[in-house]
């Protein structure tokens, strides 16, 4: 611990569409240490998936990625060529997608799809590749891996496919895995299994993980640190403990209050009133102000700066729920 693996500075991803510019990610900065699990939480459309694709420079037209720098192991990914990025993708940073039903190519066997990764990012002969495939499938808990190598994705269930995808993501021993809502498409019993598996594997392989989800409950069990995103900005970032116990941003508070709890006897779950604003027409000041019960006049006109509210804990709010000092 302590070594910075990834440092994202002022990342902006704008989509230039016919209707106008969508600022999907608007100047976010965060960092990740080796072996750390960072959770990125936010509603649909808050820019969390775009963030992950931006790091790997997989944003397609009409999207444009800008950043001061995206330092990975000290190298600036933002200034790397597409050819160099191909060596980073899969080998150094791999991704796990949201929907296991569509992430695998239906026309290739499981073995072919894992081997594709091994061929790209390693020097194995045929026999070693097969060995490694079996080893990986066993690692992610697929029974009788030898017999499943020649199977096609449609012969697997959703949970099994997500295990295969995790096996592919781990194949080249990446330093960082970005999991974009890895359990959203799975049913609840499978969710817990997959999350536990991921946490174990990340720990055992000495990798770091960025876990992107809209489920604060999931992330609080998994992550060391959490970044909360709203409308393309990080509104609060801190250790999991701080985010949950010393919540500083009203939006985070709202998310926490809307988690169902068994130990509290509530008749109705709390909810955050209103809806995520139209991305073509964002509010001028704090993006959350129209839905915030603490908002004052200042919030509607002036964009909040980052405020340090504790050690490694910052929030972008004019009137945080915790005292702090402004950082510029």
């Amino acid at each position: 611990m302590g070594n910075k693996l990834l440092e994202v500075k002022e990342l902006r991803t704008y989509f230039h569409t016919f209707k106008g510019v969508v600022k999907a990610v608007d100047g976010i900065s965060f960092s990740l240490e080796e072996g750390e699990i960072l959770g990125i939480v936010g509603e649909s459309g808050s820019g969390k998936s775009v963030t992950s694709f931006s790091i790997l420079k997989l944003i397609e037209e009409p999207g444009v990625v800008e950043a001061e720098e995206i330092l990975f192991k000290g190298e600036d990914l933002f200034r790397k060529s597409e050819k160099d990025m191909m060596k980073v993708r899969g080998r150094e940073i791999s991704m796990i997608f949201q929907d296991p039903m569509t992430s695998l190519n239906p026309l290739y066997t499981i073995q072919q799809q894992i081997e594709e990764m091994l061929k790209l990012h390693g020097n194995f002969n045929e026999g070693q590749r097969k060995e490694r495939c079996i080893e990986l499938l066993r690692l992610v808990g697929i029974p009788n891996p030898e017999d499943r190598l020649k199977s096609y994705p449609h012969q697997f269930s959703g949970g099994m496919r997500q295990r295969v995808i995790i096996a592919i993501a781990l194949a080249a021993n990446p330093k960082l895995i970005i999991a974009d809502e890895p359990t959203t498409a799975l049913d609840v019993t499978i969710q817990a299994q997959i999350l536990k598996l991921m946490k174990e594997l990340v720990y055992n392989e000495g990798a770091s993980l960025i876990l992107i989800t809209h489920d604060l409950a999931v992330v609080s069990q998994m992550a060391d640190r959490i970044a909360v995103m709203y409308c393309g900005k990080i509104v609060e970032e801190g250790s999991t403990d701080d985010i949950i116990k010393n919540t500083a941003h009203p939006y985070t508070k709202g998310l926490l209050n809307s988690i169902p709890r068994l130990n509290k006897n509530l008749n109705r779950l709390e909810q955050i009133p209103g809806m995520v604003p139209n991305m073509f027409d964002l509010p001028r000041g704090c993006k959350f102000a129209p839905r915030c019960k603490y908002s004052k006049e200042k919030c509607l006109v002036e964009e909040p700066k980052n405020i340090i509210v504790g050690r490694g804990h910052r929030t972008a709010c004019h009137f945080p729920l915790k005292e702090g000092y402004i950082l510029d």
Partner: peptide, 26 residues
């Protein structure tokens, strides 16, 4: 537009192989 094409790119597959190996076959 399919996820497996994006996933292939995220694996580090070259653009040519993504086009002819993954997308074209489908």
């Amino acid at each position: 537009r399919q996820d497996y094409v994006k996933f292939a790119r995220a694996k580090g597959v070259s653009p040519k192989k993504v086009l002819f190996g993954h997308a074209l076959k489908n």
